[in-house]
Amino acid sequence: MSEGADRPAQVAARDVAGGHFRYFDFVMVAFVVVLLLSNIIGASKRSVIDLPWIGPWPFGAGILFFPISYVIGDVLTEVYGYARARRVIWAGFAAMLYMVLMCIVVVALPVDAGWAGQAAYEQIFGFGSIPRIAFASIIAFWCGEFVNSFVLARMKILTRGRHLWARTIGSTIFGQAVDSLIFYPLAFLFAAGWTTHQVITVLFTQWALKVGWEVLLTPFTYAVVGFLKSREGVDVYDEGTDFTPFATRV
Rank of each mutant, 00 (worst) to 15 (best):
S38G: 15
P67D: 11
V151F: 12
G233F: 07
T159I: 04
G55S: 07
R84K: 15
C103D: 15
C103G: 10
V79D: 01
V48N: 06
G55I: 03
L101E: 07
Y98N: 01
L51I: 14
I157R: 13
V199H: 04
P131F: 06
T172N: 13
L51H: 02
P8R: 02
L228A: 05
P52E: 06
R86E: 06
G60D: 13
F146M: 11
P185M: 02
M155R: 13
L51F: 10
A140W: 03
G193E: 07
A12H: 11
G193M: 10
D179L: 12
L109W: 09
T172M: 04
G175I: 11
N148G: 11
F146G: 06
H20F: 02
E239R: 15
V79M: 03
G73K: 13
T248I: 15
A43Q: 14
R22P: 00
R132N: 00
F31R: 04
L203Y: 03
V79Q: 07
F65Q: 02
D179V: 04
Y82H: 10
D179T: 10
F125D: 00
H163A: 11
A17V: 00
V250H: 09
V75K: 08
V199L: 04
A17P: 00
A191K: 15
A116P: 03
A5V: 12
T241A: 10
V32N: 09
G212W: 01
V105Y: 13
F21Q: 04
G42K: 13
R154G: 11
A187N: 08
D25G: 06
F220L: 15
D6L: 15
K210S: 04
A223R: 14
I138L: 14
V29Y: 13
A191G: 04
R14I: 07
T168W: 07
G128A: 09
T195P: 06
F26N: 09
A113L: 11
G19A: 12
V29M: 13
D6I: 10
R249V: 09
A9T: 09
T221D: 10
G175F: 13
D235W: 00
R22D: 00
A43D: 12
T205K: 01
G60R: 03
F26D: 05
G233W: 08
A83H: 06
A208R: 01
I41V: 15
L189P: 02
T159L: 14
R14T: 05
A85S: 15
A136S: 15
T159N: 07
W53V: 08
Y237E: 01
L97M: 14
F24N: 01
L35E: 12
G126K: 04
V199P: 03
I68G: 01
Q206G: 15
